[in-house]
C-alpha cells in the first residue's frame, strides 16, 4: 500500500510505486478531471500540481508523489470560483474541453509566479499544452483577464 494525498485527502493505494501518477489519480482515486493525451509528456493534458509545481502526471511515478501534496483540477476550488476558472467561463475558452484541465493547471502556476504575465511569459509557460481545437488565443485572453482580477485568488 502507498499513502498519497490528493486535494488534501488521504488515499491508500495498491498500485505499484512505478505506476504513473496519472493512472493512480484516475483509476485508484477516481478523479477523472486529469486527462490522458500522449503518455510521454508531449501534450500536457495530464498536468497536475505536486507541492505547488506543475508536473506531467503521465510520466511522474507514484513514488515521486509520496509525502507531497497532489492537486488536480478537482481540487482547484470547491465551487469552480478560482479566478482562472471564472475567466475561462467568461471568455468561453473550451471547445471539446479535453485539454482544458491541463491548460488551467498550467496557468495557475504561471499566475502564482507571475502576477502580470506578458505574451512572451504566457508563450513560455503554456506552449507545452496542446489544444487540438485551437483555443490558444482565448486561453491567452482568459489568463490576462484572470491576472487583472487578482490572479491566483
Amino acid at each position: 500500500m502507498t499513502r498519497l494525498s490528493v486535494n488534501r485527502k488521504a488515499y491508500e493505494v495498491e498500485a505499484d510505486p512505478n505506476t504513473p501518477l496519472l493512472w493512480v489519480i484516475r483509476d485508484d482515486c477516481g478523479l477523472t478531471g486529469t486527462k490522458f493525451g500522449c503518455g510521454v509528456a508531449q501534450c500536457g493534458s495530464c498536468t497536475v500540481h505536486l507541492d505547488g509545481e506543475a508536473r506531467r502526471s503521465c510520466v511522474t511515478p507514484l513514488k515521486a508523489a509520496v509525502g507531497k501534496e497532489v492537486t488536480t483540477i478537482e481540487g482547484l476550488s470547491p465551487d469552480s470560483t478560482h479566478a482562472l476558472q471564472k475567466a475561462w467561463i467568461e471568455v468561453d475558452v473550451p471547445q471539446c474541453g479535453y485539454c482544458q484541465s491541463g491548460q488551467i493547471m498550467s496557468a495557475v502556476i504561471l499566475l502564482k509566479e507571475n502576477k502580470k504575465p506578458t505574451d512572451a511569459d504566457i508563450d513560455a509557460a503554456m506552449s507545452g499544452i496542446v489544444c487540438r481545437c485551437g483555443t490558444y488565443n482565448r486561453i491567452r485572453d482568459a489568463i490576462k483577464k484572470a491576472a487583472m482580477n487578482g490572479g491566483a485568488k
Binding site: 478531471g33 486527462k35 473550451p94
Partner: peptide, 26 residues
C-alpha cells in the same frame, strides 16, 4: 455563453475515458 463550459473547467465533464461502470475492467 456555452452551456457546456462550466463542466469543462472543473473536471466534471464526462468523456468516454471517464466513464465508470460497476464491475468494469480496462
Amino acid at each position: 455563453k456555452r452551456l457546456d463550459t462550466p463542466a469543462k473547467v472543473n473536471g466534471t465533464g464526462i468523456f468516454a475515458i471517464d466513464v465508470k461502470v460497476p464491475g468494469m475492467l480496462t
